[in-house]
Amino acid sequence: MTNNLVKINVLFFGACREIVGANEIDFILPENASITTVFTKLKEKYPALEKLGGRLLFAINETYATKEQVLVAGDKLAIFPPVSGGGEDIEKPDIYLLTHKPINSRELALQVIGSKDGAVVTFDGITRDNNKGKPVLFLQYEAYEPMAIKMMKEIAEDARSRWSIDKIALVHRLGRVDISQTSVAIVVTSAHRKPAFEACHFLIDRLKQVVPIWKREYFEDGAIWVDPELQ
Score class of each variant (00 low, 15 high):
87 G>N: 14
111 Q>I: 03
106 R>Y: 11
201 H>Q: 13
134 K>T: 09
191 A>Y: 03
151 M>F: 05
201 H>K: 15
139 L>R: 09
115 S>C: 00
100 H>A: 07
176 R>L: 11
212 P>H: 03
140 Q>V: 06
197 F>S: 15
187 V>R: 02
168 I>W: 00
176 R>F: 01
94 D>V: 06
114 G>F: 00
89 D>S: 05
120 V>R: 02
142 E>Q: 09
189 T>I: 07
148 A>D: 06
112 V>D: 10
112 V>W: 00
198 E>N: 13
201 H>F: 09
134 K>P: 07
116 K>S: 13
204 I>G: 14
168 I>F: 01
153 K>V: 04
136 V>P: 02
206 R>P: 08
191 A>L: 04
189 T>K: 09
117 D>W: 07
96 Y>W: 08
216 R>M: 08
114 G>M: 06
121 V>P: 14
173 R>P: 07
201 H>Y: 09
142 E>A: 03
89 D>K: 05
145 E>N: 04
133 G>W: 01
96 Y>L: 09
189 T>D: 11
199 A>C: 14
113 I>D: 10
141 Y>I: 08
215 K>Q: 03
125 G>W: 11
116 K>I: 05
144 Y>P: 10
197 F>I: 15
144 Y>C: 11
113 I>F: 04
122 T>K: 12
103 I>F: 03
192 H>D: 13
185 A>S: 15
187 V>Y: 00
175 G>I: 00
98 L>V: 00
201 H>A: 15
113 I>L: 12
97 L>K: 06
108 L>I: 02
98 L>Y: 14
132 K>W: 02
166 D>L: 01
213 I>V: 14
143 A>E: 11
121 V>Q: 10
203 L>K: 10
102 P>C: 12
187 V>G: 15
112 V>T: 08
208 K>I: 01
190 S>W: 11
134 K>V: 13
137 L>P: 06
107 E>A: 13
207 L>W: 01
106 R>C: 00
190 S>R: 14
94 D>R: 04
103 I>C: 00
179 I>F: 05
134 K>M: 07
150 K>L: 02
171 V>G: 12
141 Y>T: 10
213 I>W: 09
140 Q>Y: 11
186 I>G: 00
148 A>Q: 06
187 V>S: 06
142 E>D: 13
127 T>P: 10
